[in-house]
Simulated scan of single mutants.
Amino acid sequence: MTSILFGSISSLADTSELQRWAFNKAFADHGLDWSWDREDYREMLRGNGGADRVRQYAEQRGEQVDADAIHAAKSEAFRDSLRKDGAEARPGVVETVSAAKSLGMRVGLVTTTSPENVEALLTALSPALGRDDFDLVLDTTAVETTKPDPAVYAKALAELGEEPGACVAIEDNVGGVQAAKAAGVACIAFPNANTADHDFSAADSRVDRLDPADVTGLLEA
């Protein structure tokens, strides 16, 4: 068997700007005069962890906040928007999943976001793409350490019974690429709108849209 491992919900649908909007809504709801513009947010995305971003930003401003509560409010706003407006799969994602399944390959979603965010995104993408299209779905509850630590990829390989060389990861952020490569998994960088100018040189290839031939070609190589 071989497997394609999507590394984040934003590798399926570009939710980056929606997430930034949700952060700003959470700040306003908590009475903060913070507002992250797009350039600021692009820089923040060079690291992983939403609650950590809030903590670091508060420290820079010399303020004390409940970062976990703010992040929880942000996540709820994010999910509410997905429930209301739905989501659209990124270019080539549905075709790549369909092609992989037709070739007898397995497809996984290997993320360290919350199970609630995963469920909201997959529901929003349905019927074009849903949980039943994935042979394995892992979220932050599966491991003790989040990306760029490779723990979630090690967990995926163990559950699928796969060797690293039999898999290809698709990641939209640098931390995700680092996690995949540290686990020995080849990785295609598929940047989102807010990570497009980041350094993806550690990835095996970089694409602006998914093509089933790119994925299977990397597996064959």
Rank of each mutant, 00 (worst) to 15 (best):
P127G: 12
S98D: 11
A77F: 08
V177Y: 00
G184N: 07
A99S: 15
G130P: 14
P148K: 06
R83I: 00
G62V: 06
E76I: 01
E43W: 04
E17Q: 15
D37P: 10
L12N: 08
E17F: 10
Q56F: 03
F200L: 01
K84M: 02
D135P: 14
A180P: 10
G184Y: 05
L129Y: 10
V97D: 03
A213S: 14
D199N: 13
A193R: 15
T123G: 10
I4R: 03
A151Y: 04
E17N: 14
L125R: 08
E63S: 06
V168C: 12
S16E: 15
A196T: 09
A193I: 13
L121T: 15
V97M: 08
G184T: 05
R106V: 01
F190M: 05
H71S: 05
W36N: 09
K25H: 09
D135K: 13
T96S: 15
I9Q: 11
E116K: 12
A73I: 00
T140Q: 14
S205T: 15
S81K: 08
R90A: 01
D139K: 14
S11V: 08
A182D: 09
E163W: 07
A179R: 03
A77M: 03
N117P: 03
S126F: 07
V185F: 05
E159I: 04
D66S: 09
N48G: 02
V143E: 13
E159W: 02
V137Q: 13
A26I: 05
T96A: 13
A67N: 05
M1K: 05
L219T: 02
P148Y: 07
A154E: 14
A151S: 15
D197K: 09
I70M: 06
R38W: 06
I70N: 01
G7P: 02
T96D: 01
L157D: 05
D211W: 03
A196V: 14
A128W: 00
A179H: 03
A72D: 13
R106Q: 12
A189Y: 02
E59G: 09
A189L: 05
P212M: 06
E163Y: 06
S102R: 15
